[in-house]
Design a protein around this nucleic acid. Structure first.
Lengths: 138, 138
DNA sequence: ACAAATATGTAATAGTATTACAATAACAAT
DNA sequence: ATTGTTATTGTAATACTATTACATATTTGT
């Protein structure tokens, strides 16, 4: 890998297929859902999906939602690079809607805490579960 | 359930066995590891573990680590009640050590963010991945 | 004692992810 | 252009995590 940023043209065939499936979805997808969607494109085994996902996550183009065992395309064009400590998600437990955010104030308090306890922070998993605005209104 | 707090004497037989397995472990355990440890006490099926874990998590006596698919006994005596929005974990990717913390500053920024975007926060999943002090030293 | 609610036992199945091995394609350096 | 190297792909088998369904037993409240 010579470059440190990635766009679709950098991706291999399988990576591009998985990326496309996630980008055109309007929410998180499980690996096996992606597999089923890509069978018509020749996918036959879970590993084809997991390998592509591994790379896409590494590139910062895709995020894994730990509490959902699912994956979403990144909405922040700038997620590549050092933002693995900063991204957070809200997950509506009613409608399933997922929002991706970066909060400077959260990042700051998190990094402050890490420093305080001398923990060398590499990556943050922050998933806020609750009810979104729309569902509260309804 | 008439009371809102729980100690070991409130627990059923299976809940107490699972709680004890987690309490005497020095780190997170997977459900199936717990199952294996409790076979000698008569456990035979995953569901016996999962049902107990569900309750223990509900009581606030046990936390689930989403990024590890594992469970830990709560170290904060006060985790029962409204702290599901506040607890966070550091996970050392080298030695596997897990530390449970509550940071007022993190909680505050998180709640501030939730309010800002009108998200009704029920529960926070916060798992900080990195290298712990001991492993950095070594 | 009885009904209702809670807890348990067991089997089967569903969902998620990895290991192992073989083959192919991409690519840099001679 | 060939060779050696690395990255990617294909495929099968397996391991790990979690839930559904159904039967039985225990506890609790009246």
């Amino acid at each position: 890998m010579t470059k440190h940023t990635h766009d679709v043209s950098d991706l291999t065939k399988n990576q591009a297929l998985v990326m496309n499936a996630l980008s055109s979805a309007n929410g998180p997808l499980s690996a096996y859902t992606i597999l089923d969607e890509l069978r018509e494109h020749g996918f036959r085994a879970p590993l084809q999906v997991y390998r592509a996902l591994d790379k896409l996550v590494e590139f910062g183009l895709v995020h894994r939602l730990e509490s959902l065992n699912a994956f979403v395309a990144c909405r922040h064009p700038s997620c590549e690079g050092e933002s693995k400590e900063a991204v957070l998600f809200t997950i509506c437990e009613k409608c399933g809607n997922v929002q991706e955010l970066i909060s400077e104030s959260v990042v700051k308090s998190l990094k402050g805490l890490a420093e305080e306890i001398e923990f060398s922070l590499k990556e943050s998993v922050i998933e806020l579960r609750g009810i979104c605005t729309d569902c509260k209104a309804a």
